[in-house]
Amino acid sequence: MLKRIRESKAAQGTLLALPTTFWLFFLLIIPLFLTLVISFGKRSPDGDVIYGFSLDNYTRLFGYSTDCPDGQASCFNPLYVQILWRSLTLAFNTTALVIGMAYPLAYFIARAHPKKRNLFLFLVLIPLWTNFVIRVYAWMMLLRKEGAINIIIGALANMLHIPFTPFEMLYTPGAVLVGMVYEFLPFMILPIYTSLEKIDISLYEAAADLGANAVKTFLRVTLPLSMPGVVAGTILVFIPVMGTFIVSDILGGRQVILVGNLIQRQFLDARDPTFGSAASLILMIMTLVVTYFYTRKFGFGEEIVPA
């Protein structure tokens, strides 16, 4: 046996990769499979799972309802479709805003003097590694009716003698959007920076040499060459935004419910894991479809691995 392993490269490779593959199989693939199985099941009155094959959870998710106001047997209930749509549009809006904010900063860092680049990157890493929950909390304090933003606007208005009454910014869709942008901004800055930094300076010189001014150089050379970073960043932002529930939970309250909140509640408060599983699979399919079409168009960025 030992001799065989020593002589066979394939056996050595399998052996080395085995623990990881095994681990991933049991904690990623089996759970996904279980989720699929349970999503076809039914909830027992005490919140357990009754295995079976029923598409009820999926039809419910897409609006089929038997709990109708005017005594009809079935009707369309847009609640869950609205939640899915809200999550999708929020993810798109967040990603677009994040790209808009991250790109100039990444460009600024990449074109900074090499000696100062580390400092500027360091300034991006601090918020990135500050805990996710703490970062939402920070915004909770800023956005509250009694919070810092209202205080500052109030002070400014007072100086200019404009009447101002503090208003509640917390528990609004805007608050959730700002929170999401804040949470995921660094994940966009770093890959864009990486791809911008890779561009050889001689390419900028070549473009100038061939007659391109600064704007044209940016549009024709810099932007296309940094697309891999934008793609990687989009994957790192869009997918987690689709599934995050803390931001909407804390900054959106009961006003802004996303698919993440829906899933979480099925597993904790509502105790309907079968419906939660179905919602979670739909969420996964939505992200995979969007990612697939997006990467097919722009390629899969190799900047995706943070290092």
């Binding site: 001689s202 390419l203 010189e205 473009a207 100038a208 040499d209 001014n213 296309p224 060459l225």
Partner: peptide, 20 residues
Amino acid sequence: TPPFQRKVNTVFQSYALFQH
């Protein structure tokens, strides 16, 4: 005068070809 307004062109040591 910036490079893009000069009537000279360069062949770069690294070629600086646009890979995209």
